[in-house]
Design a protein around this nucleic acid. Structure first.
Lengths: 274, 274
DNA sequence: AGAAGGACCAGTGGTCCGTA
DNA sequence: AGAAGGACCAGTGGTCCGTA
């Protein structure tokens, strides 16, 4: 029932990598590669990151000492709230771990060629998540349990068990704001896709470029990005991405400062953004 | 600004106990004292509880072995998002840990005598939490951060730092449904208080009795207890307590079953609950 | 026995970074 | 270099149970 034409697309020609039980080696780089940082809180964020690295590397160093103490031979029952696979899934696919093809910038309607996925397919994944959420909500209501209003870990787990192994949290969170632009201003989104395809830009560049028009939309609506997400039926189920929230906040402060300055110089001609 | 007449009430005549760095002893009881269980899921809940006990007791037994490995001398910076006390609080009150007086069942308007607190005071704590939430929301909005809609851990932390040490999560969660009845049907709530006071019942009995009228309210409104909470401005900031949700669900199934039976016997006279 | 609350725990939101 | 996602971590919701 949840499978359809586009789902098949996701299965054809996946990248394959051998499944190996890998031992983590302590590579110990230590350099900070922090990009995508906005406005305030930057200092604190970096501190937290460094702290995390330090702890992780401690853990690795202690491994030889700790291992014999941990989990001494207990059987772990790996099962969730639903004990079994929900649909015809490819759970045990015999020794090959699959990874989705990378996305490329495609125009609306264009299907990606070769070992690539297009942006229509990306947005389709968001619609699929919505369907999984609706199913999870139906089950929760039926059982009288807490009913999620957003795409939560529980929904990602459900999707995986339903066989949609190509859906995962880091990916979906990574492109949420791109999907947001697609929802809120499809024309602008389409235009951006065409432009970036023409220029031969990669997905990362397109993804970055999606922030700007969203901030512009927020500016027109009083900077309340949460309200904007919540007002849209398909977008309201997604958490507002941290960076988008930060950009809107930083930019609103910029505008306020600008207005304040121009007002103090020449109140009558202050260029309000609305 | 958040202090008022009733806050003072909470400070007078607190129970005192000496502050000691207590070592946990493994008392190892093991018996299951599960009360307050409703409907389905009971089996699974008990299993989870037993599993937790087992792990906890393992941890205690391992303590002597583990201790020298843990946290080897690292300085822990104990500070939250707000570095300093917010108001005139009694943070370092010199070697005495205080515990709130127990509640007793009081009539509306009645002040508890002796080392006791009354139910008006209990309900007042919920109003205070609401004020703390509003402050946390204002700060979050100002900073462009995620804005909580419910009384979360963050709000409890904030309350504590603001000096309201008498507010804590287990207590507030414990009596939420009592506050809900107070919000949704104050007359019924008042009546129940008078009855239980007259009978000389203790707080636990009164608390238990608060469920029934709430379930009745839910029955009248299609059993959607979440919707009922969310529709009330002061109640919407509180999570629906698990047990209340379970009671509503179990009871709605009972009613459906009853209706189904009576319908199958005599459709024309089925006694619908609405 | 009745009650207050420190402290624990499973599972969350968020995203880093080892991987290919 | 660009990208997908396993896996980690700090802080959450929930409430048990050691305490008095």
């Amino acid at each position: 029932t949840t499978t359809n034409a586009l789902d098949a697309l996701s299965q054809e020609g996946l990248s394959e990598e051998p499944v190996v039980q890998q031992e983590k080696e302590a590579a110990g780089s230590g350099g900070g590669s922090t990009w995508e940082v906005v406005g305030g809180g930057e200092e604190r964020r970096k501190q937290v990151q460094q702290e995390r690295r330090r702890r992780r590397s401690n853990k690795i160093n202690n491994k030889g000492i700790n291992r014999s103490n941990n989990e001494d031979g207990e059987e772990e029952e790996l099962e969730g709230e639903e004990n079994d696979m929900i649909e015809g899934s490819n759970g045990g696919n015999g020794g090959e771990r699959q990874r989705e093809h990378p996305f490329i910038v495609t125009e609306p309607g264009e299907v990606a060629r070769g070992k690539k996925n297009g942006l229509d397919y990306l947005f389709h994944l968001y619609e699929q998540c919505r369907e999984f959420l609706i199913q999870v909500q139906a089950i929760a209501k039926d059982r009288g349990e807490k009913c999620p209003t957003k795409v939560t870990n529980q929904v990602f787990r459900y999707a995986k068990k339903a066989g949609a192994s190509y859906i995962n949290k880091p990916k979906m969170r990574h492109y949420v704001h791109c999907y947001a632009l697609h929802c809120l201003d499809e024309d602008a989104s389409n235009e951006l896709r065409r432009t970036f395809k023409e220029r031969g830009e990669n997905v990362g560049a397109w993804r970055q470029a999606c922030y700007k028009p969203l901030v512009a939309i927020a500016a027109r609506q009083g900077w309340d990005i949460d309200a904007i997400f919540n007002a849209h039926p398909r977008l309201s189920i997604w958490y507002v991405p941290t960076k988008l929230r930060q950009l809107c906040h930083a930019e609103s402060n910029n505008v306020v400062a600008t207005v304040a300055v121009s007002t103090s110089v020449s109140p009558a001609v202050a260029q309000l953004p609305f």
